[in-house]
Design a protein around this nucleic acid. Structure first.
Length: 465
RNA sequence: GGUCGGGUGGCCGAGAGGCGAGGCAAGGGACUGCAAAUCCCUCUACACGGGUUCAAAUCCCGUCCCGACCUCCA
C-alpha cells in the first residue's frame, strides 16, 4: 500500500486513486526560456520515479507534463536575442527534451503546450466571468477576484492580508479590484504576440494554461499534481483558485520536490549558480547523474558538490559492475524483481534512501555469492538489484542507456584484449611477473582495467572522473 | 511583517520516543605473485540551553544559525 505526502495536509497518508487501477498525474514542466539545469531535471527524475513505482505497483498511469511556451521572460529574452519568441521557446524545449532523454525520464503520456490550448483557456475564463469569479475591466486584461474565493491560499497556509503588499508601482492606480487579484489574461502590448478573445487581444496571464490543460486531459478531478517547492505559491494556489472557482474538484493530492542547492542556496539562473545538464554530462554519464539526483529523498534538499556527484557515480559503478559480472557468470541478464524491503521503502512516501540501503545489502550478499560461486544466490541478488534500478530509472541494461555501436566495438575489443590476456596468462604461468605486469600496465595506460577473478581475467573500461 | 522548511559523524545522506539506516572516506585484517575487485572488523553524530518521560536525535519551551516563498522560479 502506497503512502504519499500531501502538501495540502502536510501529512503522509494512504494513496487511493479516484479510479481503481488508474492514476492521473499533472506535473508542472518547463517554462522554456533557458537551458535546463540539474534542479529542473531533479524534479523530472523524482516524478519519473513516482510514475515507475506506480506502474510497477500495477497502476495504469496517465502523466501530463506541460510546456509553457509563452510568458514574459520568453518574450523578453527573445527581444534581447532578436529571435522570434517561438524559435526561442522551441530551442529550449528541445534542450529539455534532450536532457530528459539523457537521464532516461520516460516521456509523459502527453506534453501539451500552452499556445496550443488558447481555446480551452478562453472557455475557462468565460466560465469564471459568467459565474462572477473573474472580471474583465475593459482594457483587455482578465483578473480573478481572490476575495471571492473561500479557500484561497489553503495550500500554502497563508492569509490574503498577510501577503506582502504588491511592489507593483501601478498598484495605486490599478484597475484591479484588489491588489492581490491576479491576471488570467493579459492584454497585448504593441509588438507582442496575441490571440483574440471576447475581452480583447492578449495572451495567457498567470499560468492559466495549467488549469485549462489539466482539465482537458485529466478531467475535473485527478489524483496527483506535482511540481517544485517554489511553485506552491503563487502558481499552484492560483491554479487551485482558477479551477475550483470554475467548479472543478482539481487535484486530490499535491507533491512538491525540493531543490538542488549549492552552499545551502537554491540553484537558480538569477543567482548565477545553476549547473547546466549538458555541462555536467561532460563529466558523468546520464545514468550516473540520474542516480545522484534520485538518491536523496524527493522532499529533501540535495546539496550539490562535484565531489558528492563523483562519489555517487563511483558507487553506482560498483552496483553496475556487480550486475555485469552476475550476467557473465549466470550467462543471462538478471530479471527485474522487486524485493519486499525495497517495495516497503518505496511505499513509504518513496523512501529512495532506504531503498538504496536494501540495494547495498543485495550487493554485499551478491558479491559474497560470487566468491562462494553460489549461482542461485547471485541471481536472486542480481534480480532484486535490477528490479530496484529499473524503478529508479537506472537499469544499466535499459536499452535507453545501451549504445549498440559501442556494444559492437566492445565485442571487437574483447577479442583483441583476449589476445593480450592470453600472453599475460602464460607469462604468469611461467612466473614471469615482469612480463605479465607490463601487459597489465600497458592496458591500464589505455584505460583498460584488468581484474583476476576466480573465473579468469576480466577487463573493463575505466569510466572517467 | 506573514508562511514554510532545515541544522545528524571527516563527507554524503536516512530516521522522527526504546537494538547507532546505508554509502563514501579513514584504520586494521582476509584473498592475491603483486595488484584490482570483493568480503570481514573498527572508529567518529544528532546546533545550543532548559523541560516532559523509565527512556529524547525524535516531543515541549526558549536561543542561535541557514535557506525558501510572498504575484510569471523545478
Amino acid at each position: 500500500m502506497l503512502n504519499l505526502y500531501d502538501t495540502a495536509t502536510r501529512e503522509v497518508g494512504p494513496f487511493t486513486p479516484i479510479k481503481k487501477g488508474e492514476v492521473s498525474i499533472y506535473v508542472c514542466g518547463a517554462t522554456v526560456q533557458a537551458a535546463p539545469h540539474i534542479g529542473h531535471i531533479r524534479s523530472a527524475v523524482n516524478f519519473d520515479i513516482l510514475r515507475r513505482w506506480l506502474n510497477m505497483s500495477g497502476y495504469d498511469v496517465t502523466l501530463i507534463r506541460n510546456v509553457t511556451d509563452i510568458d514574459d521572460k520568453i518574450l523578453q529574452k527573445a527581444a534581447q536575442e532578436k529571435t522570434p519568441w517561438w524559435a526561442l521557446a522551441m530551442k529550449y524545449e528541445r534542450e529539455f527534451t534532450a536532457a530528459f532523454a539523457a537521464l532516461n525520464v520516460l516521456p509523459p503520456t502527453y506534453e501539451p503546450r500552452a499556445t496550443g490550448h488558447i481555446t480551452q483557456m478562453i472557455e475557462l475564463m468565460q466560465i469564471l466571468i459568467d459565474n462572477g469569479s473573474a472580471y474583465a475591466p475593459g482594457n483587455g486584461d482578465v483578473y480573478l477576484e481572490v476575495r471571492k474565493l473561500h479557500r484561497y491560499l489553503t495550500l500554502s497556509g497563508q492569509r490574503i492580508d498577510d501577503l506582502m503588499p504588491a511592489t507593483d508601482v501601478d498598484a495605486a492606480s490599478s484597475i484591479k479590484r484588489d491588489p492581490r487579484d491576479f491576471a488570467l489574461w493579459k492584454a497585448a502590448k504593441p509588438g507582442e504576440p496575441s490571440w483574440p478573445t471576447p475581452w480583447g487581444d492578449g495572451r495567457p496571464g498567470w499560468h492559466l494554461e495549467c488549469s485549462a490543460m489539466a482539465h482537458t486531459y485529466l478531467g475535473e478531478s485527478f489524483d496527483i499534481h506535482g511540481g517544485g517547492l517554489d511553485l506552491i505559491f503563487p502558481h499552484h494556489e492560483n491554479e487551485i483558485a482558477q479551477s475550483e472557482a470554475a467548479g472543478y474538484g482539481f487535484a486530490k493530492r499535491w507533491l512538491h520536490n525540493a531543490w538542488v542547492t549549492q552552499s545551502g542556496e537554491k540553484m537558480s539562473k538569477s543567482l548565477g549558480n545553476s549547473l547546466l545538464v549538458e555541462v555536467i554530462l561532460q563529466n558523468v554519464r546520464g545514468i550516473e547523474l540520474r542516480w545522484y539526483l534520485g538518491s536523496a529523498h524527493y522532499r529533501s534538499m540535495l546539496e550539490y558538490s562535484q565531489t558528492a556527484l563523483e562519489e555517487s557515480a563511483v558507487a553506482f559503478r560498483r552496483v553496475e559492475n556487480f550486475l555485469k559480472r552476475a550476467a557473465e557468470i549466470t550467462g543471462s541478464l538478471p530479471k527485474c524483481e522487486v524485493s519486499t524491503s525495497f517495495a516497503a521503502a518505496m511505499d513509504d512516501d518513496l523512501a529512495v534512501p532506504v531503498g538504496l540501503a536494501t540495494i547495498s545489502e543485495n550487493l554485499r550478499l551478491g558479491n559474497q555469492a560470487i566468491t562462494d560461486n553460489d549461482v542461485s544466490e547471485i541471481s536472486k541478488n542480481a534480480n532484486e538489484i535490477r528490479g530496484a534500478l529499473e524503478i529508479l530509472g537506472c537499469d544499466p541494461f535499459d536499452k535507453n542507456f545501451t549504445d549498440f555501436r559501442s556494444a559492437d566495438l566492445s565485442q571487437a575489443m574483447d577479442g583483441v584484449i583476449a589476445l593480450a590476456l592470453k600472453e599475460r596468462t602464460s607469462a604468469r604461468e611461467r612466473k614471469d611477473f615482469a612480463a605479465s605486469d607490463a601487459i597489465r600496465d600497458g592496458l591500464l595506460a589505455l584505460g583498460i582495467t584488468i581484474e583476476d577473478t576466480a573465473q579468469g581475467p576480466r577487463w573493463s573500461i575505466m569510466e572517467k572522473s
